[in-house]
């Protein structure tokens, strides 16, 4: 159990947005959190790394490798973020400072986390870019010179640079079209195989859930309505809302919703 969220609530002054959610992510698994926009799934993911906007308060427990992250102070959180836990966001353009080159981003990131040698930093950055299928020459480019898919790959390279144990991908493919989104996700799954890090993947796209998730949780209006193994939920949803959500998305229909060719023998 790498991450265990227990009875987490997120409130603004007026209302409760996330209401008593419990969720676990196991070591090395691909966990999907599915829900419509406004269900609170993004806020939940932000609460893990204390990234909530200042007008929101989180209460409950977020146990990461046994420690409650909500008790961490800012300095402790900063050392944790990036090293043990990192994020990829939907907005790939906002994830990079427009007037700094890609290389400068990698360099600064490593410097903050204590890598002193300049040549090591440079070599590591080039290696990281190549590991996500990009040319090391891109280090000299600026963010606006890269396509959306390239930027999101770069974001993955940055996020995995210090081999975190948990990667939180918040709608990482939503802003990309289906083909480049697919390629980015394929890469993410491959990197997971290589590094063995756990992924909490927040999405509303069943396609990706079907293909890559081990387990999933469905969120609606701040609560988890259903969670469990992928095949169980996709092929035999218990909750009415889950059923509606699954049926709303068209599939290329040859197989079961979960992507299996036939029912698994229980």
């Amino acid at each position: 159990m790498i991450l265990s969220i227990e009875d987490l609530s997120i409130r603004s002054r007026e209302r409760t947005i996330v209401d008593g959610v419990s969720l676990t992510v196991r070591e090395g698994e691909f966990m999907a959190l599915v829900g419509q926009s406004g269900s609170g799934k993004s806020l939940l993911s932000q609460a893990i790394g204390q990234l909530l906007p200042s007008n929101l308060r989180a209460a409950g427990k977020v146990l990461f490798e046994g420690d409650n992250l909500l008790d961490y102070d800012l300095r402790e959180m900063r050392t944790l973020r990036g090293r043990r836990l990192s994020y990829i966001f939907q907005d790939y353009q906002g994830a990079f400072t427009p007037f700094r080159s890609i290389g400068a981003h990698f360099d600064e990131y490593q410097k903050i986390h204590g890598e002193k040698s300049k040549t090591v930093r440079r070599d590591k950055a080039a290696e990281a870019l190549e590991s996500v299928g990009l040319d090391a020459a891109l280090l000299r480019r600026y963010p606006f010179q890269l396509s959306g898919g390239q930027l999101q790959r770069t974001a993955i390279a940055t996020a995995l640079l210090l081999s975190p144990r948990l990667l939180i991908a918040d709608e990482a493919t939503t802003a990309l079209d289906s083909v480049s989104g697919h390629r980015v996700l394929e890469l993410l799954a491959r990197k997971q195989q290589e590094t063995g890090c756990a992924i909490l993947f927040i999405t509303h796209d069943w396609r990706h859930v079907r293909r890559y998730a081990d387990r999933l949780a469905v969120m609606k209006e701040g609560r988890i309505v259903e969670s469990g193994g992928k095949h169980r939920i996709l092929d035999h949803p218990q909750h009415e809302y889950t059923r509606r959500l699954i049926e709303a998305a068209p599939v290329l229909g040859r197989s079961l919703r979960s992507g299996l060719e036939q029912e698994e023998q229980a």
Binding site: S37, H204, W206, R244, A248, A249, P250
Partner: peptide, 10 residues
């Protein structure tokens, strides 16, 4: 559109 509206609009 979000997933549920997508299906309904189709």
């Amino acid at each position: 559109l979000d997933v549920i509206s997508q299906g309904a609009v189709l």
